[in-house]
């Protein structure tokens, strides 16, 4: 039952899951490309090309939570931060990011209410 043993990436925040084939900064067959963080990587399922990779997520540089690359769960700014940590240190992020996050919060609030 090979599929069962495959390593599964699960985002600890949103629960998104997908099997991954590589963890690290240098996925196979990527030549000049280097990742700036250790990532959970899989083959890009939406590309016919076997060599295309897809970063599923990584660990938060502060709290080591496993987070997916989705903008609702994490943010990369020189390092990976889970959104919880981003909120904790909100003021240290540049205003571009701050306004972006604020806008997002508003729109999601609007959608809920």
């Amino acid at each position: 039952m090979a599929s069962h043993c495959r390593q599964l990436f699960i985002c600890q925040l949103c629960g998104l899951n997908s099997p991954y084939t590589y963890y690290g900064q240098k996925p196979p067959n990527t030549r000049a490309i280097v990742l700036l963080e250790e990532c959970f990587v899989t083959k890009d399922p939406f590309s016919p090309d076997k060599e295309r990779f897809l970063v599923l997520g990584s660990l938060c540089s502060l709290c080591s939570t496993r987070v997916c690359a989705g903008s609702d769960c994490s943010l990369f700014y020189t390092k990976r931060f889970c959104l919880q940590c981003v909120n904790k240190h909100f003021d240290q992020f540049p205003h571009q990011i701050q306004t972006e996050l604020a806008k997002k919060k508003q729109s999601s609030k609007a959608a809920v209410s």
Partner: peptide
């Protein structure tokens, strides 16, 4: 975090 904002810092890939 870097003092100066650059969209480049939001990319986790380098070539």
């Amino acid at each position: 975090l870097p003092k100066e904002y650059d969209a480049r810092y939001r990319i986790n890939v380098s070539v």
